[in-house]
Design a protein around this nucleic acid. Structure first.
Lengths: 192, 192
DNA sequence: CCAACTTTACTTACTGGTCAGTAAGGTGTC
DNA sequence: GACACCTTACTGACCAGTAAGTAAAGTTGG
């Protein structure tokens, strides 16, 4: 039985929360420990206590995304495929609605070349998990006769993933992208 | 009549060429005037002579992309729509083949929040021009009966644009994305 | 035609700021 | 008294940007 504000993990969790927001709005190269510590009201070195290197923080962030993804994909695996598709869309929309964030895969793949090696490794497995989720939705959706489309489920899943990633980024420049591309993806999957 | 190596513009052009490579591989926030000057074999301040602020360099880069886009879109406007679609794909592929670059719109929209204001303005009009090119190809292609698809040409054009942007980024993590998404886009447009 | 100037395209040298990361010390809790 | 969780104080690297100087090429007036 732990108290509401667990002293053990509270600061660590708040660091991750602030870092997540900074990662998805500014990018890994464009935020600093100063940004986090000033929001948190602690000193710089306090962040280094919990995450000695910035890449430790980055790896922890990606692993948290990965755990969330697994939990979400599992939790909605019982729903019908149309609902699961909308869940996929909702994930994207929820990022946009929070300060026009992009999705983690969009930021990580774009910044990939400048990421520390340990983060690159985590990013690869996380992004592969994202791809598999998209492919599974499309694949099962067609098997159940809910989706109809040209091409293979594997490539349509990748199209779904890549298009939403691009839409979230382009929505920063023109908000219509997110709505229009979700609408078009429904049409492409034959559910419009 | 000017010599092959125009002393007037040679350095300026070489700065833009090196900066372009750095922008599309590392991102605007992740390259410095030091990177450029060391490659060019000049001192840091020489870059500042040609581009006083880093944002001046950024704006010049985007404007050059925009001019190139206009030239390319115009030069292939006489070809049949299938060829124009392949031109669009070739632009994406050529970025990937050069050190796994992403497309300018992908980098600029992802980094949008951290870009200087003058660059943001240029990025908006450049990205809008990209969108219009994609929409025009899809729109004319369907009008001519070359493409058949579910949904509206406007949203399919945006899907084409966003999906390729995402594919170029994800190709850094797994090279299959670029090929598979091009293939799927052809299928979605009914030309497979 | 040439001397005096102006301009172009740099250089060296520097500033002030930000950055990740470290070392050593303090303080409260089990 | 050991440990968790911070603090202050610091280092060295990198960053964009500036100021002042310089060498060469171009321009102009006599």
């Amino acid at each position: 039985m732990k108290p509401a504000t667990d002293p053990q993990n509270d600061t660590r969790k708040r660091i991750l929360d602030i870092a997540e927001e900074l990662l998805l709005t500014r990018g890994f190269n464009a935020f600093s420990y100063q940004h986090i510590s000033s929001v948190l009201g602690v000193r710089n070195a306090a962040i280094h206590y919990h995450f000695p290197k910035k890449s430790d923080l980055g790896v922890a962030l990606i692993q948290r995304y990965h755990r969330r993804l697994n939990r979400l994909a599992e939790s909605c695996s019982g729903e019908d495929m149309l609902a699961q598709l909308e869940r996929f869309f909702e994930v994207a929309s929820s990022y946009y609605e929070k300060d026009k964030q992009v999705c983690p895969s969009g930021m990580l793949s774009t910044e990939f070349h400048t990421l520390p090696e340990d983060m690159q490794g985590e990013a690869v497995v996380f992004i592969e998990a994202m791809r598999l989720w998209a492919v599974r939705i499309v694949s099962e959706g067609r098997a159940q006769g809910v989706f109809t489309f040209q091409g293979e489920p594997e490539t349509v899943g990748m199209l779904l993933f890549a298009a939403l990633q691009g839409a979230l980024q382009l929505a920063r420049v023109d908000p219509v992208y997110l709505h229009d591309i979700k609408k078009q993806l429904r049409a492409t999957l034959g559910v419009a």
